[in-house]
Structures are given as structure tokens and as C-alpha cells.
Amino acid sequence: MSLSMPSVVEPDPALAGLRAEVRNFLAERRESGAFTPRVDAWLTGWSRDFSRSLAERGWVGMTIPRTYGGRGRGFLERFVVTEELLVAGAPVAAHWVADRQAAPSLLRFGSEDQKKSLLPAIAAAECSFAIGMSEPDTGSDLAGVRSRAVPIDGGWLLNGTKVWTSGAHQADLIVVLARTSGSHGDRHRGLSQLIVDLRAPGVVVRPIVSMSGEHHFNEVVFTDVEVPEENLLGQEGDGWLQVTSELGFERSGPERFLSTVPLAGLLRRAVRAGDADADPALGRIIARLHGLHHMSLAVAAALERGEDADVPAAMVKVLGTTLEGDLVELADLLAARRDGELAAAIAAAVVQRPGFTLRGGTNEILRGVIARGLGLR
């Protein structure tokens, strides 16, 4: 049993029809055994076949213009589809980063050749991306980049290390933030983004295995990797502007509060069956979920209008990831029986919980973003 997101706020009947279409498709696929709902499926549920099945229906690359192989649809339509995928716990990790972050960055900053070669592949779920931002020993200080790319004939020579790189062991390409000019002390200046083939000579992907034995994260080491000149994303030195723009897309999606929603549905079913204690806290969790649905929908509407949504996106991320942690704690407390789907969902959520408030920027960092955006500091 899953929770259903309310449709009454949708301003266009076509959105309600799209939601019903996606929901029916997912129910059929789930009943046929094509996937098993899971917590944090947008990060841990990697299935290229499933992503391709979505692409065949036009549900990947929805906001990519038709000129570049996309569907030319709006952010609100994409929101409806992604929300239903998350509520169902569907395995969407294979296309998630490419669709959510890489495609908007390519559309805004990419060259015409990059758009023509990469965007159709993203829309077809044939090209997956990882993001190379975080580095060892820098914590949440994204500007503390030490990876460096120096100019060579025909391109760049890249050296450095990225860490906590989700899906790099399965992805095709990675967008790497590296220093291309100046010194480490220059902070926001002299940074650039490079599109790197994860199977290029000199690229080594080392697994970071969690305490549960699962492998989602990686350390990626670049040693004298030759990156073609045409793989520079945007302008040299504009990397900081580009990654901050990209993070707005990363933080604004419903995955920031729906990663654990399959657990909420299972917990509600357990309460009704008498296998978990009833508690008003569960009602408060569900109310917060619906409130965040409205907030995230408003962010999607702002993106639809071409507005800057960085601060609202940060708010959704802080409130959403806090809610996810609260839900995991509540489920762990209320569940009396520990077998079957509920037990598996709780176990998975407990393991994933430490990352909720870290990935995409820690909540402490994002509170600073919110304060500055509101003129409070």
C-alpha cells in the first residue's frame, strides 16, 4: 500500500490525467514483478531497463526541447511524474542524475554540439551521469576543490579525487568540478566543469561500501586523464556559477521528502492491521508530507516560469530531509512486528538515514543559504 499525493492542487486537468496514467503504469509493473518498492529508490534502485521503459513513454527528459530529442513538456508535468515514481519506490537511479541535473545544465551552459550529442541520449535513458563535486577532507566546503585540470594541446589534463559519488561505478559520464586557473586560495574563481568518460584511461572508480554491505557511493580518482577541449561545460572559470545553478535543481525535487514515503505507506497499513501502535505522530508525519508536496509543487511552478528558486528549494530540502529522518525514527519506534515488507523497509531506511541531511548540501549549510537569501545575515 502506498500513500497517494493529493491531486486537488493541480491547476490543469491534464496533470491529473498524467498522474493517473503514471500511477496505473506503476501499479501494473509492480504487480507483474517488474520491481519491488524500496526506500531511497532514486539513489539505490538502478535499472537501465526500467528507465528505458519510462523513456519509451516520454517520462524521461520531459523538459528537454523536442529539438534535442526531448518531450518539450513543462516542469509541472515532470513534477507529477517524478512524484509518482518516488511514491511507488520505483528503481529510477539509472536516469535520475542525468535527467535532474545534467540535462538542465547542458541546456543552459552546454555547447550546441554537446546538446545535440548528449541530450537525446539522456531523453532515451541511454546515457547516465554521475556528479563529481565533493572531495576528501573538504567536508561541505564545495569551494575547497583541489582537483585541477591544466591546458594541453586539444584539451585538459585532469588530476584529482572525488568522493561520495553516487552511481559512478555504473554511470557512463561524470561532470567534474575542477580548478582550471588560479590557486586553491582563489575559492570561487578559476573553477570549471568538465564532462569526463568514466571509462577513460586514468579514471579509477573505487567502491565505498556501507556498513550494511551495500554499494552506492564511490571514490573516483583521476590521474593524468586527458579530457577533450569540447568536453568543457560552459565557459572556463564559470564553474562556481554553474554548480550553484545545478544544485538548485538537485535540491528542489520531491526526492528530498519522498525517499522514505514507501515506508510511510507500510507503516500506515501496519497500524490499521494492529501490527504497529497507533500514534498521533504518524498523522503529523502524513500532514507534513502533504505540506511539502505543496511547497515542492510551488518550486516546480517557479521553475516553469523561469524564476530563481534556490532559496525555496533549500527550504524544501531542509524540511524534507528532516521529515524523512523523523519518519524513520517513528517507524522504528512503533512497529511491533519485525518481519516482511515493513521490517525490510525499516532496515533499509535506518541504513540510509544518515545521508538524508548530508547529500545535496548539509542542512546546516542550507540554513545559511536560506538566511542569506532572506537577508537575515
Rank of each mutant, 00 (worst) to 15 (best):
A121R: 15
V221Y: 04
V8H: 14
A302V: 00
S296C: 15
I174A: 08
V316I: 13
G72S: 02
V350K: 14
T260H: 00
I365D: 12
A143F: 10
E324K: 07
E135L: 07
V350T: 12
G274R: 08
L158K: 05
L118F: 15
R377Y: 06
K116Q: 14
S128I: 01
V87E: 03
V209G: 01
G132N: 05
L266F: 08
G265A: 01
L233T: 05
I131R: 05
T44A: 13
D224C: 05
A41E: 00
A168E: 01
G360W: 05
I131A: 01
A313P: 03
L282H: 04
G167P: 00
E307S: 12
A90V: 01
L292M: 09
H290Q: 12
W164V: 06
T82L: 11
D137N: 11
R78F: 08
G61C: 04
E10Q: 11
E219K: 15
V311P: 08
M5G: 05
V176I: 13
T180H: 02
G368C: 03
M211V: 14
D49Q: 14
R146V: 07
V221D: 07
D308H: 11
I285H: 07
A55K: 06
S7N: 03
A171C: 12
L43F: 09
T244I: 06
N231R: 15
F79N: 04
S51M: 07
G160A: 03
L258N: 10
A178M: 09
L76Y: 00
Q235E: 12
P254L: 10
R206H: 14
E364P: 00
T161H: 07
R337L: 08
A34D: 13
C127S: 07
V261T: 14
V318I: 15
G253E: 13
A301T: 10
E329Y: 12
R187C: 00
L263S: 07
G167C: 09
L54D: 02
H216C: 06
A171Y: 08
A347S: 15
T223Y: 00
H95I: 00
P37R: 06
G167D: 12
D153A: 14
P262S: 08
R29D: 08
V311R: 09
G139K: 02
I286S: 07
I286V: 15
I122S: 02
S140R: 10
D12H: 09
Q193T: 06
V225S: 01
L158I: 12
I152D: 10
L54Q: 03
R71F: 08
I286N: 06
Y68F: 15
A264F: 05
L177D: 00
E226L: 10
V209Y: 02
D172G: 07
P312V: 08
V176D: 04
A90P: 01
A34Q: 12
M62I: 09
W164I: 07
M315T: 09
T244E: 15
E341Q: 14
R305H: 11
G320Q: 11
V328S: 05
R23S: 14
W156T: 07
K116D: 12
